[in-house]
Design a protein around this nucleic acid. Sequence first.
RNA 1: UGGGGUGUCGCCAAGUGGUAAGGCACAAGGUUUUGAUCCUUGCAUGCGUUGGUUCGAAUCCAGCCACCCCAGCCA
Length: 580
Amino acid sequence: MTDQKSASTTLDEVVDSSTSSNFIRNKIAHDIKENKHGGRVHTRFPPEPNGYLHIGHAKSICLNFGIAAENSGLCNLRFDDTNPEKESQEYVDAIKDNISWLGFQWNGDVRYSSNYFEQLYTFAVQLIESGKAYVCDLSANEAREYRGSLTEPGRNSPHRDRSIEDNRDLFERMRAGEFADGACSLRAKIDMAAPNITLRDPVLYRIRHIEHHQTGSKWCIYPTYDYTHCLSDAIEGITHSLCTLEFEDHRPLYDWILHSVDIASIAAASDLAGTESDYVLPEQTEFAKLKLNYTIVGKRQLKEMVETNLVEGWDDPRLPTLAGMRRRGFTANAIRNFCESVGVARSDSVVDLGMLEHAIRDDLDKNSPRAMCVLNPVTVVLTNLADEHLENLSMANHPKNEEMGRRTVPLTKRVVIDRSDFEAVPPQGFKRLTVGGEVRLRGAYVIKCDEVIKDAAGAITELHCSVDLDTLGKKPQGRKVKGVIHWVSEAKGVPLSVRLYDRLFNVENPQSKDIEDFRECLNEDSLIELSSCIAEPSIVEEGASPRYQFEREGYYCLDEKASSESGLVFNRTITLRDSW
RNA sequence: UGGGGUGUCGCCAAGUGGUAAGGCACAAGGUUUUGAUCCUUGCAUGCGUUGGUUCGAAUCCAGCCACCCCAGCCA
């Protein structure tokens, strides 16, 4: 088991210090003060391996691991794998990978609810023996009818009063595989008239003759979430079981199950067995899910987009999956900061995408080296330079951080600039190149456009400019040059493709009730590939960074998956803020 | 119309009886060889609403309104 101190040290480096209070932090501080769990804080992140993790999970991960770290506690990773029908090892692996990438280390070995199946079975027998559970032969449809409705109470199952002996026998036979899927189930005997529907004799075990990714064919009965989750928490000695708001109605059931099983046997089966501390049951606390406008964070919809090829896969850079965001160029640090800035509360809220964008710009601005890359090149001929002119200019990799060093950028007679940096008829306030106007080539000289060369169709092919050779590293004499533009040597630059991403949806809430199918509001231009870009050579030289700020354009990240020997591909993570 | 929740600036969000933090966004200035960054300033006599209690209420009480979740052998 990881020792508490090292876990907290790791997280300290990772958790932003500018934290603000929230109801969970307050509750835990209070519990510690009251010595509720002997002062222990032990959380868990319990994903079901039925899909990839997304930004919403990141909030939960940061919360659970963060709150443990802040309190010198522990956080387990436990796969809530009670429904083999929807789960797979692929998801298990991807989830572990994503959590590590986010910068968190779980306590000890990865846990699986399925690790506890045998123990859970024993507890179920105990419930049967104390008359708190029974085997019910009602089909799923019949059970629904018996359950009643939101406004009407349910009716007792005709099998509710079977003898303990019969129940025990039937349950054993369920396990032994004597019954077909759905033929019967084990139910808790609580109250069919409870206003909280969760308490109307919830199913504890169902029959599924199906292979499980962890337990193979050992079991044909699988415990349900409600039965498994609370007991798994208890077994692991979890103190604070944090989950989302929709589980609020389940809290009475969480408590009912824990209090219906003999606490001494839970304690004996728990990780805390043999520990001096008195065993205290875990407590569930709910918080609001993260929602983001212009994006969908719903496993079902994400899965649908992946499976119907609306996107390229779970790691499509337009997706809010951690895999996608990572490929897009998001940093773990930015995601963690974002989750902290969003806060934790109980009100349903929708966070503005702008907050996420701010988090990534903030991180990338500080940590990305700069480079120049021209997206839509047009040739500029520097007429007063010699044909073979080659000048190695030294440029800072970061305007504010000298420690990031310098690089050499070659200047030749022919360079390229972005087409949008020249306007024959400039609008008011245009600060770039115009006919007869001057502009500085970033890190180099001030140039003046003397002539525009066009082809037969009238399209600009070249701009002929003259260089003011007295402006390298100094302001020009007697005038101000308003603009600075980026450029790349035509001969020395490296060709690359760039993928420009935009939001996947063009409406704030793609899941709104007045939208029948979220596909209606897909943004057609969410991916634009530019294939004739040209960047300064430093981006492929020894010691090149995987991420750059392409000056005046945005933050870009090498896409290793898409790049090949025949071509480099960079993903635009996010544009620069643009007040123009 | 049963039960459980939530309502504080355009968006998050602190605040738990002593007179409305912070962030994002936005706006206006300043610096700048990135229309970036950075800096400065502005941005709720107001806390869903109506009453009540109190010297004093976003905080306590009552009613009302709006929105979210629950009728899987999903989690």
